[in-house]
Design a protein around this nucleic acid. Structure first.
Lengths: 68, 68
DNA sequence: ACATAGTAGGGTAATTAGGGTA
DNA sequence: AGTGTCCTAATTACCCTACTAT
């Protein structure tokens, strides 16, 4: 049985994603707001990103249907 | 086991690469478009270059199979 | 409750992409 | 063929203060 993909996923902080792309953390936030990158919100409002999605993006694999 | 080369690599901005080669950033872009230099893209379309590859090129070590 | 580091938010300057040209 | 420069539009970086994460 396949569990929901939303669970058991390693989450990355904005600064970690920023380091992988060599951009500013604010830029990653901008990507999330634009819907270019899906994001989870902590109860305090901070964003967390799926590692698998980020790594796919780094490898040039486009991801679809991701709205913040 | 060889992991994806896109991971765990320090990336350089176009201007940083340009400074290392003492050329205009536009020239670095042309190298990437020609496939002479591999590059990844930010979600906004800006290019980032692998530092190790740039270092090798600076040392006269040719790199193969790099298509923009 | 306190301290440190990271993040959200808004606003402004600096880079970059892309085409065309010298 | 290869590089530098000019242009506009888009993207990204840095400034700040307040709030969250640990």
């Amino acid at each position: 049985m396949a569990a929901s993909p939303s669970e058991s996923e390693t989450l990355l902080t904005p600064s970690e994603v920023a380091a992988l792309f060599r951009v500013d953390p604010k830029t990653v936030t901008r990507w999330a707001k634009s819907g270019k990158l899906s994001s989870i919100r902590t109860l305090g409002g901070h964003r967390r990103y799926h590692e698998v999605e980020v790594r796919d993006l780094l490898n040039g694999i486009p991801v679809q249907g991701t709205v913040d």
